[in-house]
């Protein structure tokens, strides 16, 4: 590293500043593009960070080490998810029967389909482990990944693609099947598309949004509790 790059400051403050700038820039660009559902703000922000790292000549490993100062907040943010769950307890209790029947099966299948397809195509265990939590909201998925292994980046990439795909498929299939109940569409968005699906559901209306957060939280909690156990049982 030589020339002007040598005088550039580095360390955690730079990493955090770069991340915040990229996030704000990503959100701004996202609004400017008319909030496209195929390209969430997080993806734009991540691209901006990658570009920034490349321009500043910062190795990804250094960034990864420094940004921990910021991402430590994911822990309390995960604990915070208990609050919306508590606030929605009434709708959960009111619909406990259909939710209880559907959720475990839907959440388990969301993981199984992807793992089975990848396994049939000959992907190694590390890839399978990275794909399994694909429908879980990121902070919980990171917790699962700590338990079952796999690549964190591949898992987060998979999460992102899953969220975008779920949003597209839900709108498309709901139209095809003539489904218009906002509760059902919202719940499906939350179960399959985690936070990205939930953001989309809030655009459809408050009912869809509430049921999406419910689906997202329940899928996350269910998968976070059972996936590590199942993974251990099968010795993968």
């Amino acid at each position: 590293m030589s020339g002007w790059q040598a005088s550039i400051p580095n360390g955690p403050i730079l990493a955090i500043a770069l991340t915040l700038a990229a996030y704000l820039g990503g959100v701004r660009l996202f609004e400017r593009l008319g909030r496209p559902s195929w390209c969430p703000a997080v993806l734009i922000g991540a691209l901006l960070i990658a570009t920034g790292l490349w321009l500043l000549g910062i190795p990804y490993r250094d960034y990864q080490r420094d940004i921990v100062w910021l991402t430590l907040l994911l822990g309390p943010a995960t604990v915070a998810l208990a609050v919306p769950l508590y606030q929605q307890r009434q709708s959960i209790f009111a619909l406990w029967k259909p939710i209880l029947c559907c959720l475990p099966l839907a959440a388990a299948l969301a993981a199984c389909y992807a793992v089975a397809i990848a396994w049939l195509l000959g992907a190694p265990p590390a890839v399978l482990a990275s794909l399994a939590p694909k429908s879980v909201t990121a902070p919980l998925a990171i917790g699962i990944q700590e338990q079952i292994g796999g690549s964190l980046s591949l898992m987060l990439g998979g999460l992102l693609i899953t969220g975008v795909m779920a949003t597209l498929f839900v709108s498309w299939l709901a139209r095809l099947l003539g489904i218009r109940d906002p509760r059902l569409i919202g719940f499906t968005l939350g179960v399959n598309g985690h936070a990205i699906g939930t953001v989309r559901a809030f655009e459809l209306g408050p009912t869809a949004g509430a049921f999406a957060s419910l689906g997202m939280s329940l899928t996350g909690v269910f998968t976070a509790l059972f996936l590590p156990l199942v993974w251990r049982l099968f010795g993968a």
């Binding site: 991340t19 915040l20 990229a22 996030y23 990503g26 969430p40 703000a41 997080v42 993806l43 922000g45 991540a46 691209l47 960070i49 990658a50 790292l53 990804y60 960034y63 990864q64 940004i67 910021l70 991402t71 907040l73 994911l74 309390p76 943010a77 915070a80 998810l81 609050v83 919306p84 909201t137 990121a138 902070p139 990171i142 690549s151 964190l152 980046s153 591949l154 987060l156 990439g157 992102l160 936070a195």
Partner: peptide
């Protein structure tokens, strides 16, 4: 905190371009 979830997961997403 929940409002900032998207920002908090973003550094992890960056890794996609590097793996």
């Amino acid at each position: 905190l929940i409002g900032q979830l998207a920002m908090l997961i973003m550094p992890g997403v960056v890794g996609v371009f590097f793996v």
